[in-house]
Amino acid sequence: MKPVLALLPIAALAACTTTAPEARPAARIPIPTMTYGTGGLERVLGQTARGLTQQFGAADADVAEGTGRKLQFGSRICVLDAYLYPKGSGEPVVTYVDARQRDGSAIDRASCVAALSRREGGK
């Protein structure tokens, strides 16, 4: 019985040890995408920066974000953010758009695209 009692503290210490968690590589952040041809956004989705400026005039903001780029266009009605990401070795294209009214409240993205198409002189 005494040999069993002598092993009890060793067994108790072994139960207290922990193993370090296995290191895992960081997850890749997915590039947002939208389905082409839905919601009246086909005039914007898939466009290059040049295609957007031909439609809406000069961008009000042009921001590089990692491998992506955000072009922002505004009118008296709304603000549209177009996010462009490279596809393979080709030129970056719009894969996601977001829109809001000037006061920050929600607006339909397709309605904002239509409003921007009617702005004069790119504004």
Rank of each mutant, 00 (worst) to 15 (best):
I29R: 12
A114I: 07
Y83P: 00
V113M: 07
I77A: 10
L13Q: 05
A106H: 10
L45K: 00
G46A: 07
R100E: 14
G74D: 13
I31F: 02
V94Y: 01
E120F: 06
G88W: 05
A20T: 15
G122A: 11
S105K: 14
C16N: 07
P9Y: 02
S105G: 14
I31D: 03
G51A: 00
R118C: 00
L7F: 05
A12Y: 12
Q47S: 12
F56C: 08
I29E: 12
V97S: 04
A6C: 05
A82K: 09
G122I: 03
G57H: 12
D81T: 01
G66S: 07
S105N: 15
K87Y: 11
A59F: 10
R102P: 08
Y85W: 11
P32H: 01
S89Y: 06
P92L: 06
T35R: 13
P9W: 02
R119P: 03
P92E: 11
T38V: 06
V79H: 08
P86T: 08
L52H: 02
P32N: 06
P25H: 08
A82F: 05
L116D: 10
I29P: 00
R119C: 02
A14V: 14
E91S: 13
Y36M: 05
S105W: 03
A114Y: 01
G57W: 11
A14D: 07
T35A: 12
A11L: 15
V63H: 12
I77S: 06
L45D: 00
F56N: 04
V63S: 10
P92D: 08
A115M: 07
T19N: 12
R43L: 04
G90D: 08
G66Y: 07
L7W: 07
G51V: 01
R118T: 13
A49Y: 09
R43S: 08
T17G: 08
Y85P: 01
V4F: 11
A82G: 11
R119V: 15
P9N: 00
R28G: 07
A11I: 15
E42A: 12
T18N: 04
